[in-house]
Amino acid sequence: MKMVLFYHSLLSDWNHGNAHFLRGVATELIARGNEVIIYEPENGWSLSNLIQEHGEKAVEEFYEYYPLLKSIQYNAATIDLDAVLQDADLVIVHEWNEHSLVKKIGEKRKQSSFKLLFHDTHHRAVTERESMKAYDLSAYDGVLAFGNMIKEIYLKEGWTKRAWTWHEAADTRIFKPLPSDGYEGDLVWIGNWGDEERTKELFEFLINPVKELGLKAKIYGVRYPEHAKKALKDAGIEYGGWLPNFKAPEVFAKYRFTAHVPRGPYVRSLPGIPTIRPFEAMACGIPLLSSPWSDAEHLFTPGKDFKFAQNGEEMKVLMQQVVAGEPWVKDMTEHALQTIRQKHTCAHRVDELYTICEELGVNNCSPVNTDEYVKITQ
């Protein structure tokens, strides 16, 4: 199958949490023998910020971890869509693309035989409804939504006639347990500060418990304002800045546990959508503690895959138990790893995509090239 994918960025994960899943799916599709061509805009905000802060070396490292992947940078004003889309069987457009490009690709769909899907992996359908409503999806064959609530919004609002829930998942080629020579600290947290959507929660479930317990902790991420950096310093937490997503497994192996503190929109308006962070932690075999959110779509088994803390005091107790090595910690971590491997890998999501392709009449889904597939997955 020839697939053309329009990503915001393949090369950069700077403030771009979807990069993990997008890269993992593309790798899986290539491993199965598909022709996968990925486009991303030149001077996109994620890549531009990455290079500005860390130089071209950051991009060179990407290729070391993802030797099968590459992207073509385009100029929206000059891209030749007729040439780009020629002979395509399936085209997927990620929702961080410009409205004008989304519309132009839809117009080409009217004149062609390829199938066209829009891929939504964010909370903007709730928080920026007018912007999402402005996407012209009239010629699209449907929407891939990373949660049931997002799917229902598209259908209820009439933004699309067909939609499928397509959850994110772990790229287990990269995200897997790694050997460790010993712990460098107790807690590591990987996440961006953002637009103050979870400031209160970060203090209650992360910063304050670490400070009160005197744990050795490190936090990675971008867009941390000065007041946030000061709060981390006051709590004795080291700030590590940007961490390449593909290096997260190496970092997880050096700490006793991690935490999940979801952003406000996911807790209040989009129950059941955990974002990529829990998938990453569980796939790497690091114990996971979490502030409250509703696993309404039953992706995991709370209590067996991870532990919920309903408030800061409960989080402190759980942190103490993890550091003390209580027996449940090992059992929980092993259960979580099996949950990922059995249900939530990028290979599972490609299987689901193949089923959608069959519904749409894309009948030339490539079978796995067994020799190449084994070589890539080892």
Rank of each mutant, 00 (worst) to 15 (best):
V25D: 00
N311R: 05
H123G: 15
C346D: 06
E28Y: 08
L270T: 03
T127W: 06
G240N: 08
S9C: 07
R256K: 15
K233Q: 11
F246Q: 14
I356C: 09
V267C: 00
T172Q: 14
E358P: 09
K104D: 01
L22E: 14
E28I: 05
F146K: 10
T165F: 08
G194R: 08
D181T: 15
E326T: 06
G241L: 02
H167P: 07
F146Y: 14
F175D: 05
L337F: 12
K375G: 07
E197C: 12
V329I: 05
M319V: 03
L288P: 02
Y135L: 08
K110P: 00
F21G: 01
A83I: 01
L202E: 07
G241N: 01
D351A: 13
V350C: 12
L202I: 05
A228M: 11
R129L: 07
D331L: 13
F308M: 11
P179I: 01
I356G: 09
V126H: 11
A347G: 14
D89T: 01
A76Q: 09
M282F: 11
K307P: 03
Q86V: 00
T78V: 00
G312D: 01
I190A: 07
R129E: 12
V222T: 14
L81Y: 00
P225Q: 04
K230Y: 03
H16E: 10
F300N: 02
W193C: 08
S12M: 05
F118I: 03
P274W: 00
L213T: 11
V329D: 03
K104N: 05
A77F: 06
Q342G: 09
E250Q: 14
Q338E: 15
G191C: 00
V368S: 11
L243R: 11
V210Y: 06
S294L: 13
K375D: 11
F118D: 03
W45E: 15
Y154I: 04
I105K: 02
E128S: 13
W164L: 07
E60Q: 09
F205N: 01
Y65C: 13
H298F: 13
I79P: 00
E130L: 12
L68H: 12
D371Q: 12
F246Y: 15
N364A: 07
F203D: 09
R223S: 14
F118Q: 02
N311I: 07
V59W: 12
L68S: 14
Y66P: 04
M3H: 08
R124P: 00
L117N: 03
P327F: 00
V59G: 08
E42D: 12
I219C: 09
Y39Q: 02
N363S: 07
K151I: 04
V84D: 00
G142I: 06
A83C: 04
Q342F: 14
